[in-house]
């Protein structure tokens, strides 16, 4: 079968257009809401810029995932899965159930498994999104300080897990420390940006500090790997 058939590109293009329409809908609606509740338009516009800049490096990494998966699955299926709903880790694992995809039955089965695996992610938020939001409002209305600390604790819980994750291969020797060195490099770059901001008072630094530090960390992974491996 032709895994890169024009009709597959057409279907994926239509689905992605629908999801993009949803994103545009919520962007416009939220922007308008921000204006209605008195938020400064400058803050809203800056958020658009920051989110756009922040997204570039991770989006290129996702594109790399598409290129990798396209060897086995053609371009349209990985394009669909990684543009919407999916995650690189799941799609890679799900496609790993077969070594090669040559016949149509295998292709549709892999596409089916990828889709069914994410069905809870698609529908559960629709059923419980409202309850979770009401729950958060209740927590915050009971005790505002605790409500804010609760949110901070949520973030810190996630960040602490990824901090641990970085150390998840240290048993393999120096090679396993590459993610740790990248983590520390990126953290150092961010700290330098923070210091630079304090000293120079250049506010624009805040817009680019995180994406810049992330790219510095990623780029330094190249010499670290060549020195260590």
């Amino acid at each position: 079968m032709d895994k890169n058939a024009a009709v597959l590109y057409l279907i994926v293009g239509i689905i992605i257009a629908v999801v993009t329409a949803q994103a545009v809908f919520f962007l416009v609606r939220s922007y308008r809401r921000g204006v209605v509740i008195g938020m400064d338009k400058k803050v809203l516009n800056k958020t658009i810029l920051r989110a756009g800049v922040f997204t570039i490096a991770p989006a290129i990494a996702i594109l790399v995932g598409i290129v990798t998966l396209s060897d086995k699955l053609g371009v349209p299926l990985p394009w669909l899965r990684l543009s919407v709903i999916g995650s690189l880790s799941y799609e890679t694992i799900a496609s790993g159930i077969v070594q090669v995809v040559e016949d149509a039955d295998t292709y549709v089965t892999v596409a089916f498994i990828m889709t069914i695996g994410m069905i809870v992610s698609m529908f559960l938020p629709l059923f419980i999104g409202k309850k979770i939001q009401r729950g958060m409002i209740k927590i915050q209305s009971k005790d505002k300080k605790w409500g804010e600390l609760f949110m901070t604790a949520l973030f810190m819980g996630m960040i602490s897990a990824f901090l641990g994750f970085v150390f998840g291969a240290v048993n393999t020797g120096l090679k396993g420390f590459i993610p740790v060195f990248v983590f520390l490099t990126s953290a150092l770059a961010m700290a330098i940006c923070g210091l630079l901001l304090k000293v120079t008072k250049w506010k624009w630094i805040t817009d680019y500090a995180l994406p810049f530090s992330m790219v510095v960390g990623m780029l330094m992974a190249i010499p670290y790997t060549s020195w260590i491996v």
Binding site: I159, V182, F183, T185, S186, M214, A221
Partner: peptide, 11 residues
Amino acid sequence: QILPALFGAMA
């Protein structure tokens, strides 16, 4: 190394 780079800066 995108995740270590991302979470290093955030952490």
